[in-house]
Amino acid sequence: MIDRGTIRAAHKELGLPTDDAAIDNAYHDTVDAIGERIDIHFTHLTNQWHNEHPEAQGIRPGEVTGELWQQAQIRAEEEMEERFNAPIRELTARKVEAGEDGW
């Protein structure tokens, strides 16, 4: 899970506000976005599981539900990490191209 320290470091690297209020807002926005993405991934994975297991006749065992939820959570968190990492990679690449130290 992305924490406030990670967000603060990303903001600092990108020249974005690093005050507590800005970090709290970004953190809550990130948590909300992760929750939304988990729901989307879980729905997709659930539908996929049901399509692959018609013999279940719409009944999904609890252990399958747990596994699908975990997969959805991992995917959502990876997406959010990428949301922070992609701009940092781009910034670093631009600095290197300009002959500056990327870090």
Score class of each variant (00 low, 15 high):
residue 3 D to K: 08
residue 4 R to E: 06
residue 5 G to V: 04
residue 8 R to N: 03
residue 11 H to W: 03
residue 11 H to Y: 04
residue 12 K to A: 14
residue 13 E to N: 05
residue 14 L to D: 12
residue 15 G to I: 07
residue 19 D to C: 09
residue 20 D to P: 05
residue 21 A to G: 06
residue 22 A to W: 02
residue 24 D to I: 09
residue 27 Y to S: 01
residue 29 D to G: 07
residue 30 T to F: 00
residue 31 V to A: 13
residue 34 I to H: 00
residue 38 I to C: 02
residue 40 I to H: 11
residue 40 I to D: 03
residue 42 F to R: 04
residue 43 T to P: 07
residue 45 L to E: 06
residue 45 L to Q: 09
residue 47 N to D: 12
residue 48 Q to I: 10
residue 49 W to N: 04
residue 50 H to W: 10
residue 50 H to E: 09
residue 51 N to L: 11
residue 52 E to N: 09
residue 52 E to P: 00
residue 52 E to V: 08
residue 53 H to L: 03
residue 53 H to M: 08
residue 54 P to A: 01
residue 54 P to E: 03
residue 56 A to Q: 14
residue 57 Q to M: 13
residue 58 G to I: 06
residue 58 G to H: 08
residue 58 G to K: 09
residue 60 R to L: 08
residue 62 G to Q: 07
residue 62 G to I: 03
residue 63 E to M: 10
residue 63 E to C: 04
residue 63 E to S: 13
residue 64 V to P: 01
residue 65 T to Q: 10
residue 66 G to L: 13
residue 68 L to Q: 11
residue 70 Q to F: 10
residue 70 Q to Y: 08
residue 71 Q to T: 07
residue 72 A to I: 02
residue 73 Q to V: 02
residue 82 E to P: 00
residue 84 F to E: 03
residue 86 A to C: 02
residue 88 I to E: 00
residue 89 R to Y: 07
residue 91 L to W: 05
residue 92 T to P: 01
residue 92 T to R: 09
residue 93 A to T: 11
residue 95 K to P: 12
residue 98 A to D: 15
residue 100 E to R: 10
residue 100 E to C: 05
residue 100 E to F: 13
residue 102 G to A: 15
